[in-house]
Computed example of a mutant assay.
Amino acid sequence: MSAPAHDEHEQVPQDPVEEVTKHIPVVVPLAGAIMMFLLAFIAVKMA
């Protein structure tokens, strides 16, 4: 007799921190651009 075949793949639990850090290279520059725009808008409005 042969050993039974195991076709079940164990699912590795996803790390929530790893899921967030994948998006950091896009989110941080985008947030910086929005902040610069808002600060420039406030400076022009107050001038």
Results as ranks from 00 to 15, higher is better:
A3L: 11
H6A: 12
E10C: 02
I42L: 12
V28N: 04
P25H: 10
I24A: 12
F41S: 13
A31F: 11
H6P: 01
H6F: 07
V28I: 15
P29A: 05
A31V: 15
P13L: 04
M1S: 08
F37L: 15
E19N: 09
H6Y: 05
G32Y: 00
K22S: 05
G32K: 08
E18R: 08
V12Y: 04
A40L: 15
I42D: 02
A3V: 13
A40M: 14
I34K: 00
E10Y: 04
V12K: 13
L30G: 14
I34Q: 00
F41Y: 11
V26P: 00
I34G: 10
P13C: 02
E10M: 05
M35S: 11
H23C: 06
I24E: 03
D15C: 15
P29E: 04
Q11G: 00
L30W: 06
L39T: 13
V12M: 08
Q14H: 12
V12G: 03
M1E: 06
A33P: 02
M36V: 14
V12E: 15
Q14G: 10
L39K: 08
K22N: 08
H9Y: 07
A31S: 14
A5G: 02
V26W: 09
A5I: 14
T21Q: 11
S2H: 04
V26I: 14
A5Q: 08
H6Q: 10
K45L: 15
D7P: 00
A3G: 07
A47D: 08
P25M: 07
L39N: 07
E8W: 06
P16I: 13
K22C: 01
P29N: 06
M35E: 04
K45I: 06
K45G: 05
K22A: 12
